[in-house]
C-alpha cells in the first residue's frame, strides 16, 4: 500500500527537478522548474492568480457554505416541524457527483436558456452570462459548490450540537440566552472539534478544487483564466490541454510538489492551532 502512495509522490518530486525532452525526462535542472512557476512570466502570473482564486474559494466557502451550514444545523437541532424531511433535503445534493452538479448548474446558469436568467426576467431583472463574465464566473462556481456541499458540514455541525448536553442548553435558556447568544457563546465553543474537521476538509477541498471548475468552465479556467485554480493549472501544465498546450511534466510536477507542501504545511499548522483551541474552549 505504501508503495502505491509513496511511489507517485516520489516520482512527482523527482520529475520536478528534470527538464523534459518532449514527454521523456531529460536532464537534471535543479530548481529551474520551481523558479519558472514562481517567478518567470507568464507562469508566475498564472500560478499566483490560481493560488489567489483558491484563497477566495476557501474563504468564501468557510463563510458562506459553512456559515450557512452552522445555521441550518441549529435549525435542525431545534427540531422544528418537518426537520427530518429537511435534514434529508439538505443532505441530498451531497450524494450527487460533482460532474452531475456541474452540468446541472451549467444549464441553470446558461445565458440564453438557463433557469436563473428566466427567473430574473420574471421579476423584470436583466440576466447575464454568469459563467462567461469575469466578474461572476468564480462566484457562480463557489455558489454551486456551496449548494452541493452545504449538507455535509451541516450534518457534522448537527452531530457536534447533538453531543452537547441538553442541560447546558436549557440552563443557558433559563439564564435568558436567546438564539444568537446560544449560537455564538454556548454552542460555538462546544462544537470546536466539528469546526476543526470542517476547516480541514474545506481547506483541502478548496485547494484541490478541480471537478466543478473543469466541468463548468473548462480546463482553461474560462473566461480568460477568471476561474483558473491550482488544480486546473497543474493538470493543464502536466498533462497538456489537447486544444492548446503541451505536456510539461517538469513544471507540472513542480506545481504538484508546491501544492502538496502548501496544503500539508498549512494543514499541520492550522490543525495544531485548532486542536489547542478545542482544549482551551
Amino acid at each position: 500500500m505504501s508503495l502505491f502512495v509513496a511511489w507517485p509522490l516520489l516520482s512527482a518530486l523527482r520529475y520536478a527537478f528534470f527538464s523534459f525532452k518532449g514527454v521523456a525526462p531529460d536532464a537534471f535542472v535543479g530548481l529551474a522548474n520551481f523558479r519558472d512557476v514562481l517567478t518567470s512570466e507568464p507562469y508566475a502570473s498564472w500560478t499566483w492568480r490560481a493560488l489567489w482564486h483558491n484563497v477566495i474559494v476557501f474563504t468564501s466557502l468557510m463563510v458562506v457554505q459553512n456559515g450557512l451550514a452552522y445555521l441550518i444545523a441549529f435549525a435542525l437541532l431545534k427540531g422544528l416541524p418537518g426537520h427530518r424531511v429537511h435534514q434529508v433535503i439538505v443532505f441530498l445534493p451531497v450524494v450527487l457527483s460533482a460532474v452531475i452538479v456541474g452540468f446541472l448548474w451549467k444549464l441553470f446558469l446558461h445565458p440564453m436558456f438557463g433557469m436563473v436568467n428566466a427567473a430574473l426576467a420574471l421579476v423584470g431583472l436583466p440576466g447575464r452570462p454568469w459563467l462567461g463574465d469575469e466578474a461572476t464566473a468564480l462566484g457562480s462556481l463557489i455558489f454551486t459548490n456551496a449548494w452541493h456541499w452545504v449538507g455535509f458540514p451541516a450534518l457534522i455541525f448537527l452531530a457536534g450540537m447533538q453531543r452537547i448536553q441538553k442541560e447546558t442548553l436549557e440552563a443557558a435558556r433559563i439564564d435568558g440566552a436567546n438564539d444568537r447568544v446560544l449560537l455564538t457563546r454556548i454552542i460555538w465553543p462546544l462544537v470546536a472539534p466539528a469546526t476543526t474537521i470542517i476547516f480541514t476538509l474545506t481547506f483541502i477541498g478548496s485547494f484541490n478544487w478541480f471537478e466543478l471548475p473543469y466541468v463548468m468552465t473548462g480546463l482553461n479556467g474560462s473566461p480568460g483564466g477568471a476561474t483558473d485554480v491550482l488544480g486546473l493549472y497543474f493538470y493543464r501544465t502536466a498533462f497538456g490541454n489537447t486544444t492548446s498546450g503541451l505536456q510539461d511534466f517538469g513544471r507540472g510536477s513542480a506545481l504538484a510538489v508546491l501544492m502538496f507542501l502548501f496544503i500539508a504545511t498549512t494543514c499541520a499548522v492550522a490543525l495544531r492551532y485548532l486542536r489547542r483551541r478545542e482544549i482551551q474552549l
Binding site: 446558469l109 445565458p111 440564453m112 447575464r128 452570462p129 454568469w130 462567461g132 463574465d133 473566461p223
Partner: peptide
Amino acid sequence: MPPGFTGI
C-alpha cells in the same frame, strides 16, 4: 453574436 455570448 448571441446574447450573453461570453457565456455561450
